[in-house]
Design a protein around this nucleic acid. Structure first.
Lengths: 168, 168
DNA sequence: TAATTTGTTCAAGTTTTTTTGAACAATCTG
DNA sequence: CAGATTGTTCAAAAAAACTTGAACAAATTA
């Protein structure tokens, strides 16, 4: 049981990618390993191949499934749960946006409301005016980000099924 | 010298936003403070208002300028450098993509090349075939992400200059 | 030139995040 | 049921990220 060199490199690629998306390294490693493999892997195989602990493997696999980045299959006549990577970029991006971006936008709405509240009972009219201008700007940003996300999902999915027209 | 309540709330909003973009909290606080203010602030004012150290202020201001999120002005007859926030979302997003996303895409190209290399001198033809399929998938993802970024810049900028049509 | 102002650097300290592994549940098997 | 297998939880350890502040450099002023 071992990893090929190119698999090590690919896993490292995903490790770094996870990091830059704000996810733990181990999530990237686990996804990367499953991405490389054709056959589903069980938790103990993931642990052994990556040299990570039971806890990391268990939590990582759960989080990745929650993100829609992996899914599990049960081999008939076997108690073990085995995992495979989702490789459609559209699904990966969609899951990430749903679990990470959308909640942030929601929190943003709440915070904007809070600022409104603080602005209402404020007698310093200069600060109030300034605050209202800022509130408008933030609302505009929020609106634009909300508009953007659907486009991202759309554009990324676009050529999943289109074969490349030419070879360069 | 003090912060209004709404400013505290706005600064906290940016603190959290910075966090979720993978930037240090203090960067968010500094940007948030400048975002709230009409007049440029000098480093010592930023330090005092946010209760952060010289080091954090210096590094934060530098990084934010590098990102294009703030710019500096010199009051005539004063040695101090003072800072103002960039509030055009298009510029903010553009700077972020330039400094964060683009480098990652470049690193991705390098890693893909490395994987190619490892695949070339590999005699296990099964692993080789599998590796080549994965390499193709990754190349496709890279292409799609490269396509996406220009759209993001475009869509986000769109209504910066359009005034809101109505008041709600 | 000495003293002051403004800002940078980076080693050390602090805080936060991630990982580990032992204890615990739940499910199957003989 | 006792023992084996599979997987979860979470407190403590380890690692990573962030912040601090004292020492330093550069530019200015008296």
């Amino acid at each position: 049981m071992h990893l090929d060199q190119w698999e090590v490199a690919a896993i490292d690629l995903f490790l770094n990618a996870a990091n830059s998306f704000g996810l733990p390294k181990s999530y990237g490693q686990i996804y990367g390993l499953l991405f490389c493999r054709d056959l589903p892997l069980a938790m103990d195989e993931v642990m052994e191949l990556l040299n990570i602990s039971k806890g990391s493997a268990s939590q990582g696999l759960r989080a990745l499934r929650q993100l829609g980045a992996i899914s599990s299959v049960f081999a008939p006549g076997d108690r073990k749960e085995r995992f495979v990577a989702e490789i459609r970029l559209r699904k990966l991006v969609g899951g990430f946006l749903r679990e990470q971006a959308d909640p942030h936008l929601d929190k943003g709405v709440a915070r904007l409301k809070q600022i409104e509240t603080l602005l209402v009972d404020l007698d310093d009219s200069d600060s109030c005016k300034r605050g209202n201008r800022r509130h408008e700007i933030l609302s505009g940003w929020h609106r634009q980000m909300s508009r953007l996300l659907p486009w991202v999902k759309m554009i990324v999915g676009k050529s999943d099924r289109l074969p490349a027209k030419n070879k360069n």
